[in-house]
Design a protein around this nucleic acid. Structure first.
Lengths: 209, 209
DNA sequence: TAGATTGTTAATCGATTAACAATC
DNA sequence: TAGATTGTTAATCGATTAACAATC
């Protein structure tokens, strides 16, 4: 008699966990030891029931009458999100955006570490970008396999993005953060998230007079 | 006897329109004149019914048996999203990220135009960032009113973000794209969208082994 | 016309919330 | 203990989808 698999946690719930985690990190930096779902909800502009429901998918992290221990909940969420470790990340694209990403200090300490940078421009290959030597994008799949990299950031022009993504998939990458303003196609089992500032601006301009 | 207001279009629908618009722009660049909801859906990894339903909130843009005229639908979506015009945008923060944003060529042509840049660092004020002179952030509210700016991009460290947002609100800004990794508080009627790459990475690392 | 695809309805599916027993 | 807040259930709410008449 086989075990039924747990019902998968909805992706929309997973998407909120990093927001909770970020708020908890700030609370801890402020020296707060305990937080009630009601107060966290207020801070995040959502309902306390939603926070409790979301967390209940993963365990019982609070104490009735008290709330949640900030540090404990933070650590639990890190474990749930698989960032109780450090992930090496490949960055593809060494233009202005790639530069900003390579120099961004916010990855360390939140579970990620950029470990290599690629570009296909012969003018850039072999040069330095911060602490990185820019590698030839032609070597992408081989290098990714060699370094066992599962996460990549794409910061290339839209017209190059799908080809880069294909190379990343060939190299074994399973999670892609795509800054190129284009929807890309990937096989099942590969995750893609998009960052396109214009999409966010357009979404807001709808509400402007 | 008063008119009942139209039921507001759900925000989740508004959030998909820029994705449709982006795809339509690419289709047009590829020279495609007509697209069926089925084909657009396939390209975007969603259902054709959802696309048709979303569009039906705003009008009848297609032709039975044919599909949608790419250029016509693109123009209609631009109108719906209020980007059949150009919005001036203020950028706050002239660090690495602000630099990348100021130099990013993707705003023009999609409805937005960065028109001024602010920073609070005396070392930077008065210097140039690309085509901009960096203005003193102390003048934010006054300058925003003077230029009648309604949209701003925040690219400052997390610990400065809430104060900057407060100044933007004072200056009359109604839409804020926040790159600082912190949830900010704004009055009703002011819209905020967040870009935090680490949130996206964490959301994906959940699914990695 | 025959074939294709829209726009829309109604059914299904899933997410959010209110409420409260459990309990710290 | 009394008060507060969790974890969970059931009800509500809202979004997605299947299906098809309308029609190009």
């Amino acid at each position: 008699m086989g075990m039924l698999p747990d019902k998968a946690v909805p992706d929309i719930v997973i998407g909120r966990l990093p927001i909770y985690l970020r708020a908890l990190a700030h609370l801890e930096a402020e020296g707060q030891r305990i937080i009630a779902s009601k107060d966290l909800a207020k801070r995040l502009g959502m309902s306390s029931a939603q926070i409790r429901k979301d967390l209940s998918h993963f365990g019982e992290f609070g104490k009735q009458g008290m709330g949640y221990d900030v540090t404990y909940l933070r650590d639990q969420l890190r474990t749930v999100l698989n960032i109780d470790r450090r992930w090496d990340v490949a960055l593809v694209g060494a233009g202005d955006l790639g530069h900003a990403i390579a120099y961004y200090g916010g990855f360390e300490g939140r579970g990620f570490h950029i470990s290599c940078v690629f570009d296909n421009n012969p003018q850039k290959i072999g040069r330095r970008l911060g602490r990185f030597e820019i590698l030839d994008a032609i070597e992408l799949p081989a290098k990714l396999r060699e370094l066992d990299i599962r996460i990549a950031i794409v910061a290339v022009p839209a017209n190059a993005a799908q080809a880069v993504v294909d190379d990343l998939v060939t190299g074994g990458v399973k999670a892609i953060l795509n800054y190129a303003p284009i929807t890309v196609t990937v096989p099942a089992g590969v995750h893609v998230q998009y960052i396109d500032p214009v999409v966010h601006l357009q979404r807001m301009s709808y509400y402007l007079e």
